[in-house]
Amino acid sequence: MKILIDGMAEAFQLVVSGDPLVLDAAWRSIWVTSTAIALATVAGLPIGIFLARTRFFLHRVVVTTLRACMALPTVFVGVVCFAMFSRQGILGPMELLYTPWAIVIGEFVLALPIIISLTYGAVQSLDPRVGETIQTLGARAWLRILTYIREARIGISLAILTAFARCVTELGIAMMVGGNIKSQTRTLATATAMETGKGEFARGLAMGLILLAIAIVVMSVMTWVNRQRESR
């Protein structure tokens, strides 16, 4: 119990004192994850809506596979990305290994099936009249997508939030393709693992608590945004 209290006290102290290493890792965690989620959202929403509104050969197989991919082990994604970004890999010439962009791509792969699957579920559960109203009023493709997003915004917000929570806390990808390089690819998750490994348990716990605080802040912001939209 004492170690938890010490961890919380140190977390508070680290943030208040503006510890540069902690702030650097925290900032990197946020921008890497935000970029990955933004890219996965842009790619995933139209795919999720398409899957919800159309049926084709092997549709069920595609949906089931995507749902299964929601539980992708981050270490597995990390290994696959490592193989792709290493010198012998197909993306080797891009020299992305051990850069923040390698983590962004890995987290994109992690987030994409989550956003597609949960968007699919959110749009699928809409009243059938939504699709018919949009269609009968002659909305073009881009307007249909925007309207489905608007109608299913709570479910889609949840999809994005879930993907963000999964990515911001993941360790496997950041460690394997990021390499935990100080001031370059170190994120809060890799810093937490490293500090704990060094025996600095309280400092590791402090990093973990900051990570938790980021997740709570993001969740609160999303809830507030949804309430604002609902009250319009």
Binding site: D127, E132, T147, R150, E151, R153, R232
Partner: peptide, 20 residues
């Protein structure tokens, strides 16, 4: 039972105009 899209009555009225 007509479906009202999320938004104001004005938004609903103008919805079809966006594509025609």
């Amino acid at each position: 039972s007509p479906w009202m899209l999320s938004g104001t009555a004005k938004f609903n009225l103008s919805f079809g105009l966006k594509s025609h």
